[in-house]
């Protein structure tokens, strides 16, 4: 079978296809206005707002929280959150720069792959950095009572299980990207 066979078949089929594209579909697209890129940017923006809120709450926690965490602990956790915000901001800018109308397929693919890798690395770094800080709470904080320790452990465990599931799904996506040629 030659490629020309495929072409001749396509040329014979194409004129007879009715694309079923009516004015209503076009109008709906014009009025909808949000594409995959915009939705992704919006999602990234909301996650940045959420983490920024967490950062502010943590930074001011000594004023309002009943448990006073030591300054070094607060500073370290704030640095982790700040790192997350900066990485998200970088990712946001990378997505924003993707130009579906001018960039080549290869450039878009390379950008998406690097974005996914960056996201994976960010997740790994923040998890590894946050783990000892979270584990420190029930072990070292004398003012936390038994139920508080139980709460801390449960919360830490749940957070990491959730993070692990989330991370695994992202790795799956990343693997799909790497295996692009083999699909």
């Amino acid at each position: 079978m030659e490629l020309e066979d495929i072409k001749s078949k396509w040329q014979s089929v194409k004129p007879l296809i009715d694309p079923q594209l009516n004015d209503e579909i076009v109008k709906r697209s014009i009025s909808k206005g949000t594409d995959a890129k915009s939705r992704l940017l919006k999602r990234s923006l909301w996650s940045q707002i959420f983490v920024s809120g967490c950062l502010m709450l943590l930074a001011t926690s000594r004023i309002w929280a009943p448990v006073k965490y030591p300054y070094w602990w607060l500073i370290l956790f704030c640095i982790i959150l700040l790192f997350t915000i900066l990485c998200s901001l970088r990712g946001y800018n990378i997505v924003k720069k993707i130009n579906l109308w001018e960039d080549s397929n290869t450039k878009i693919m390379a950008t998406v792959v690097s974005l996914q890798k960056q996201y994976r690395n960010m997740e790994l770094i923040t998890c590894i950095a946050a783990l000892p800080l979270l584990l420190w709470i029930p072990f070292m904080l004398p003012s936390v009572k038994t139920w508080g320790i139980f709460f801390c452990w449960s919360f830490t465990l749940l957070a990491f299980i959730f993070e692990y599931v989330w991370y695994k799904s992202n790795v799956k996506q990343l693997n799909n990207l790497i295996n692009w040629e083999n699909e």
């Binding site: 007879l16 579906l100 109308w101 397929n105 878009i108 693919m109 998406v112 799909n176």
Partner: peptide, 27 residues
């Protein structure tokens, strides 16, 4: 470009459909 971007960002795993699952083609 839109298809590649949308598939990569939206779909956890690309699964090709069988021909019968596609929209009915009107000739």
């Amino acid at each position: 470009n839109t298809c590649l971007f949308s598939l990569r960002k939206l779909s956890p795993k690309i699964k090709t459909l069988s021909f019968d699952q596609l929209p009915i083609i009107h000739f």
